[in-house]
Design a protein around this nucleic acid. Sequence first.
DNA 1: CGAAAGATTGACAGCAGTCAAACATCGTGG
DNA 2: CCACGATGTTTGACTGCTGTCAATCTTTCG
Lengths: 257, 257
Amino acid sequence: MRSQRRRSGASASVPIATPLIRKLRAFRSLSEDETASINTLEKTTFSLHAGDEFIRQNTNYRELYIIISGWAAREKCIENGRRQIVNFVLPGDFACFNACLFKRSSHTVRAITELRAARVKRRQVLDLMAQNPGLALAFHWANSCEKSLLEERVASLGRRDAAARIAHLILELWYRLKVVGLANRREFHVPLTQALIADATGLTQVYVNRTLKRLQREGAITFRSGPKWQVKIVDLKYLKDVAAFNKSYLHFAEYHG
Amino acid sequence: MRSQRRRSGASASVPIATPLIRKLRAFRSLSEDETASINTLEKTTFSLHAGDEFIRQNTNYRELYIIISGWAAREKCIENGRRQIVNFVLPGDFACFNACLFKRSSHTVRAITELRAARVKRRQVLDLMAQNPGLALAFHWANSCEKSLLEERVASLGRRDAAARIAHLILELWYRLKVVGLANRREFHVPLTQALIADATGLTQVYVNRTLKRLQREGAITFRSGPKWQVKIVDLKYLKDVAAFNKSYLHFAEYHG
DNA sequence: CGAAAGATTGACAGCAGTCAAACATCGTGG
DNA sequence: CCACGATGTTTGACTGCTGTCAATCTTTCG
């Protein structure tokens, strides 16, 4: 893993709403103390280049990372040589919270853009969770949200056709980006290639291309391909219909106290 | 939900190794105190008939359940009318641990056999976890194991063909049953219909039939269909090759202290 | 400008789905 | 003990969604 260490610009006294903090606020509001604790957790940051790996499949976890900016992919290589992206890792996500519970990783996490992340020792997280059980619950909430995303992905791969899978993925990414303040309008940045979308949706790159074109032709979306992917949701209702999308699985803003 | 309440036979003084306890032992050994705590948690049991629901998609969680015996399925109905089973729920599993974190369920959990389960108040679990952080970690480990199962299922649905998916499912169930002491040999009870396997693997019932027959013809497995499904793994190595199976994702017995 | 990465398109193949009918098994009741 | 309906399995014929292969085009970037 090539990486350059550097101190982040966060001074201890000025609390900043990092993506992780924004995301946890979809669970419940955080006290100043809690915000400060998370700022401390995210103090030591570093950068990765596209293609670099945080964690490699079948190796031992060493520490945790919290994504500050940039995208990564959680992927599995199957022994038949094929690759499946199980989820995209966005700013505010852990990579991987599993390091607190498992010894070895059963997947690879790879940066797919230039990326900044915080490096956190497993012990730091466990200590923080022990001393603030409320925050521990919030972290476990985030972990369970990922579980819910996976369940929906299983449903997609099992029972949605190509157009529905792609439409669903676009909508999911949109909602997730909105929660961390990275998609305010219906046009937003998606740094994915058609090959990455294929590996996430269980399709081939060629068929992803055909299906994207179709969605565009039908007036659902507009997009600009290449490394500077920009997606625009033109007809939100139509896109949701195609995807059979119901946002309840995201579990945003439904904390029950 | 039709159900008959009854007291279980577990007296407070005689600790019993319930499936949940057996499973957690794959994480780490439990103290007598911890075993007793879990026995207390599982004190109030009840029965369900095949087809009964624990939790319905898009309704509020009320309490948690711990499966004592029998199988259930966690399923999602997509608005296009199709059904996907995201996971099978076996003895020792929670249904659903999510109730501690989310307000509403984004899936249905349905008994697929006669079934016995313990009824647990959300507060009971949260209190126990607060007073025993070590046990809390063990519960979160179990929750994360399910997450890992889902990731592997995503990989199956995305990048494995029909034979590999079915072979993989059989092997996964075998390992999970072994951990809770329900499959000691290579022949074990699997109370699934071909339609259920289809809904879990994203295939159709007809194609599941053809593929099972093929696996049998090739000498990988033997099975007896119907409500009293019995599967025998004849050629373990061959079955693992077909499935591209690597058990590391199960995260059994790899606790790092 | 040239190489590399990614997108687009066409022709064709094949895995898995659909439809439909026959068969087997199980539980129930007369 | 057998008849019967319900549920589940098996098989065949045919369809179609998505994959494969390969060539060309476009964009990016050093």
